[in-house]
Simulated assay, not measured.
Amino acid sequence: MNLAFLASHGGSAARQLVTACQRGELAATPAALVSNNSRSPALAWAQAAGLQTAHLSSARYPDPDELDAAILAFLVGAGADTLVLSGYMREIGPRVLTHFSGRLLNIHPSLLPRHGGRGMYGDRVHESVLAAGDSESGATVHLVTAGIDEGPVLAQARVPVQPGDTLDSLKARVQAIEGDLMLRAVQGLAAPSALSPT
């Protein structure tokens, strides 16, 4: 498995997966990272870690189809066969979606299908959970499809919503489980029977 990542900011999932590869916990080779943000900490970190990197954004490719083609060409050139979204804040184009179909993963900070869909990202998700009065939240790793947050669920992990929770306290509890959940989901791609949605 040759892993590539799309990241807009810190790229915490990418960092955890690369570390797992280095420790022998994940039978994969980190190959490349693309960011739409030239000042992304993930981009600088990936360069230092020896991954092939590229800054590809709408500033350089204002036509979405051209941007989609440029991202795909770079990832294919890097030898990537599995693509992980690590806080990537842009929609994925149809060329990338088609090429990596069944091998394109994202993590969402709620128990999908609850609190998913267009406009539901980052702090908005946790605010929605709290506003709904849910007794639990968590994170979901799913395959990326054309529908936002609609792809098949690969793995979920749950956390309680505690009385008096704030946005920050709930977010911290969810973020604490995301790295291990993503690792389990990527490991499961090589052994599908190991995956469990819950």
Rank of each mutant, 00 (worst) to 15 (best):
G116N: 06
A146F: 11
G117S: 08
G117M: 09
P113W: 00
R95D: 07
H126I: 08
H142G: 03
V125G: 10
D149A: 04
P109W: 01
P109N: 01
F100K: 07
R103A: 14
L104S: 14
L104I: 14
N106H: 12
E136S: 13
M120P: 07
R114G: 06
G138H: 03
H126V: 11
H142R: 01
G133N: 08
G102W: 15
R124P: 00
T98M: 09
Y121K: 12
V96W: 11
L97C: 10
V141W: 03
E127C: 03
D123G: 13
P109K: 00
A139E: 03
G151C: 05
I107S: 04
R124I: 09
N106W: 11
F100V: 14
R114Q: 07
S137M: 12
Q156D: 02
G117H: 05
G102L: 13
G138W: 06
G151K: 03
L154G: 07
P113T: 03
L143P: 00
V153C: 02
L105C: 13
L111R: 02
L104K: 14
H115K: 04
E150Y: 02
L154V: 10
H126Y: 14
G151S: 04
I148A: 12
P152R: 13
V153T: 13
D123C: 06
R124A: 14
P113N: 00
D134A: 12
G119W: 06
D149L: 13
A146V: 13
D149V: 07
F100L: 11
R114P: 00
P109V: 05
V129A: 14
R124Y: 11
G147D: 15
